[in-house]
Simulated scan of single mutants.
Amino acid sequence: MRRILFITTRNPFSKQYSGDRLRSSQIIKYLSKKNKLDLVYSDVLTNEAIPDKSFKGNKFFFKRSLFLSLINSFLQLLKINPLQLGFFYSENAHKFIENQHHNYDVIIFHLLRSAKHIPSNFTGKKILEMTDVYSDNYKQTFDQISFLNPLSYLYFLEYLLIKNYEKKCSNIFDKIILVDNNNLKKSKHILKDKIVKINNGSFIQKKSFIFKKNNNKIIFIGNIKYLPNKEACFNFVKKILPKINKKFPEIEFHVIGEISILNKIMLKRYKNVKVLGPKKNLKPLIKNSICGISNLNIATGMQNKILNYMSYGIPSICSFKSFNNSELKKGKDLLVYKHDDELINFIFKLKKNKSLSNKISNNGYTKVKKSFNWDFVLKKYSKII
């Protein structure tokens, strides 16, 4: 049994859904089964109670001030460090970790932004759950934004700072966890012998998809406060859905996930768009669905939304940029498109072709059940701690 401290910058068990929270909560629950694990987390939000049935270890919460987060971001910039290191930094959390680190054999830092909390003189194993190569995410975002937008220069600066810091982390941490082969290809600046690939996983649900000619929903699941998801939703309702509705006026686009009030109002202005907000029980929402989509133009790692769709047997369509897992087969487990016309064509085929729709549904569901169960994919963690 190992004594583990897990450090993250958001409540992993929050009711607000996001892919990073889902992954961190599953790692915590998995490692807690055979080890003593304590949790340190900070947030600008008020602390949400974590029920014992989710996690029975010690929980230490530190509230961050938004004002201090902005000041800390500026201070990190002066040190030529990424802004996010300062924004997510908590002085009280850091003091606690400095005073308590000797009680643990292993410390796991969730995402690059928590790495600033690494204690001095810790002699145990240090693991960075980086998940994605974040520098690439910022580079893709910079490429997507007009150079006339002042934010584009901020994204480019952060890209350079994060890439340099990712390189530094190679010399600090014993192991760095990445989520898929696509991230491995983009990690040449990180020492190869430090990297371990551990996939995302999914919960196995009862298969709910039933092909019917009157199915009329296209599903998108994700945190719409996250820029790549927001951009994907607005791109779909502006450019794709109108073309689909010319042939099938009854087809609707259903958005499920955390979203700001402003973006909710703006999306609902478009015809045949339903914004449902964050939902824990997806089963009643996916009834009459044609497919689930991951139409991201900015993507670094394996998208949890794809595994989520497959876990219910919903046929999945994803952009080429979203497709980065060699264990999933194009045209068999899911459909992968390279341009908008191909996306529209795939949706039409899944709407009309029962054979194709059931093939993608059954193969995707079987693959997730066999290869992406959380307990199965997280076995590697037992070996590296």
Rank of each mutant, 00 (worst) to 15 (best):
K359D: 05
V255T: 06
G331S: 08
I344V: 14
K349E: 09
K352V: 15
I286N: 01
G301P: 07
S260N: 11
R269S: 09
I344P: 05
G257A: 05
P278Q: 11
I306P: 00
N304M: 07
L328P: 02
Y365L: 12
I360N: 01
I286P: 00
P315I: 05
K351A: 14
N353M: 03
N297V: 13
I261A: 07
H339M: 13
N362Q: 12
K367F: 04
S316L: 08
N288Q: 07
C318T: 12
N288L: 02
N297L: 12
C291E: 02
L334Q: 03
I344M: 05
K279Y: 08
I317F: 01
K349N: 10
F376H: 14
N363W: 04
L296M: 14
N308P: 02
K321G: 03
L350F: 07
F348E: 06
S294D: 11
K369S: 15
F253E: 00
Y309C: 08
G277D: 03
F372I: 02
N281I: 15
K359A: 12
N358D: 11
T300P: 01
N362C: 13
F320M: 06
M302N: 03
V273S: 04
E252N: 07
L262H: 08
R269A: 05
G277Q: 05
I360G: 01
H339W: 09
Y309F: 14
L343R: 04
G257H: 01
Y270E: 05
I317N: 00
N281W: 11
I347L: 06
V273C: 05
N363V: 07
K264T: 11
I298D: 00
K349A: 08
N263E: 14
I347N: 03
